[in-house]
Simulated scan of single mutants.
Amino acid sequence: MGANGFDSSKLERVLYLYMAIKATPGKSPGELRQELGVGTSTYGRYCALLKGLGMDFRFDRKARRHVIEKDAFLTAPDLTLDERLAIILAMGRLGGLQESFLASRARKAATKLLAVNEASVAAACSALLSGPEMPAHVGGRGQVVDTLFRAVTERRRIAVSYAKPHAEPEEFEVDPYQLYVLDGALYLDGYHWGRRAVRCFKACRIRRARLTEITFTNNRDYAYHERRLSSFRVFATEREPETVRIWFSPFAAPYIREEYHNPSQLLTDNPDDSLVYEVRATEPREVLWWAMRWGADFEVLEPEWLREEAMEKVRGMVGRYGMGGRESKSIAVTE
């Protein structure tokens, strides 16, 4: 007890509890009580004291971790105004994130960041975070996504049930390496023990994920940046990249110039204001799928097998619209 009747040891335990909840949210209240050396009633008083000081938290028994809803002690990061605005604006685009679990948590994080900014910054950005939220069924299941985050950070092998479209679910184990978002969806790169190779998994296709007791240290030379270099959008494989060349009409060309997909991409302007888009990709079909949104304003030039595949798709579209028996000048395909 201090000279003024202040119990410094109590303050130390409360501060320890505060830091423990933030640094190791996976510890249960029982584990924290044991570390503090206090009983249930004293622990309850410490929690009430923290909440009275502006820290709202709870222990989620289903997720088996503490969840911090509000932290009055959160300080403003050492960021410039431009950097803070960029982060908040990026989070404001999360309406396009096809992951309701991640979107809701990122929105909470942005709200906390707004709370420690100047009023003018908060006013300029708050509307971005008040729009409609993603429906809860969109994207990966919350518990699955949370398990993936824990597995990556703790470097623990997971057992998953994975279901591709038009296929039966598969059960296998994965050493998780990296989580990332592409085209609004959450993906996981990891070592597939059944295939004995690194594979890319879409989080929304993982029906169940369970942490095992096995930890791993061998990343098998995995490097996220290098793996993405030859990927056009999502798919990254061990195959050698192929050169893909696509012609875009004068109408589409200005829009194509605004896009960037891969470091290898090359744009060649033609005298008639059309352009040729060239890129090296390990999965050329992704380039075709992207180009097809331009309808008659694109043409695959190479590789030949991809050109033939594009023509087959166009013939299928002609048949779908009942135009197989007549000419159509709106679809320009040279065979």
Score class of each variant (00 low, 15 high):
His66Pro: 13
Ala122Val: 12
Ala48Lys: 14
Ala90Pro: 05
Ser41Arg: 15
Glu170Trp: 02
Gly316Cys: 04
Ala86Lys: 04
Met1Asp: 13
Leu74Met: 00
Asn117Phe: 02
Ser8Pro: 13
Gly324Met: 06
Ala236His: 11
Phe248Lys: 04
Phe201Lys: 02
Met55Thr: 12
Leu79Pro: 08
Ala20Gln: 14
Pro271Phe: 14
Ile246Tyr: 03
Ala109Ser: 01
Pro135Ile: 04
Met323Pro: 02
Gly316Ala: 12
Ser126Met: 03
Val244Thr: 03
Ser130Lys: 15
Glu31Ile: 07
Leu97Ser: 05
Lys70Val: 12
Glu258Leu: 03
Glu304Tyr: 05
Ala122Thr: 06
Gly324His: 04
Leu53Tyr: 06
Thr237Ser: 11
Arg45Glu: 09
Glu335Val: 01
Cys125Met: 05
His66Asp: 03
Glu83Phe: 07
Glu226Arg: 06
Phe149Met: 00
Leu179Asn: 00
Glu242Asn: 10
Thr215Pro: 03
Lys329Ser: 12
Asp175Val: 10
Leu81Met: 14
Lys10Ile: 13
Tyr321Ala: 11
Tyr43Met: 06
Pro303Leu: 05
Glu83Ala: 12
Gly37Met: 01
Lys27Met: 05
Thr24Cys: 04
Ala197Val: 10
Glu12His: 13
Glu168Arg: 05
Leu306Arg: 03
Gly316Met: 00
Arg257Val: 08
Gly316Asn: 07
Gly322Thr: 06
Pro271Arg: 11
Glu69Gly: 14
Arg307Met: 06
Met1Ala: 14
Val138Tyr: 01
Met134Asn: 07
Ala281Thr: 11
Ala109Val: 00
Ile246Phe: 01
Ala203Asp: 03
Val276Gln: 01
Gln143Cys: 05
Glu12Ile: 13
Ala90Met: 13
Trp247Cys: 09
Asn270Arg: 15
His192Glu: 01
Trp193Leu: 12
His137Ser: 09
Trp289Pro: 05
Asp78Ile: 04
Lys112Trp: 15
Phe232Pro: 09
Arg293Trp: 15
Ile331Asp: 08
Val333Asp: 03
Asp221Gly: 09
Phe216Asn: 05
Glu286Gly: 15
Tyr222Glu: 00
Glu283Cys: 11
Arg285Pro: 11
Ala115Phe: 02
Arg207Asp: 00
Tyr321Phe: 15
Tyr18Phe: 09
Thr237Lys: 09
Leu53Gly: 13
Ala124Pro: 05
Val160Asp: 01
Leu50Gly: 08
Gly37His: 07
Gly316Trp: 11
Gly142Arg: 11
Ala136Met: 07
Ser328Asp: 12
Leu288Cys: 08
Ser249Phe: 14
Thr268Tyr: 09
Arg245Glu: 10
Gly5Ala: 15
Arg157Ala: 15
His225Gly: 12
Glu213Arg: 03
Gly324Ala: 15
Gly44Val: 06
Ala163Trp: 02
Pro169Leu: 08
Asp175Glu: 14
Leu306His: 05
Thr334Met: 06
Arg141Glu: 15
Phe232Asn: 07
Gly54Ala: 13
Thr75Asp: 08
Leu229Ile: 10
Val276Cys: 09
Asp221Val: 12
His192Asn: 08
Arg84His: 10
Gly322Trp: 06
Lys108His: 13
Ala90Val: 01
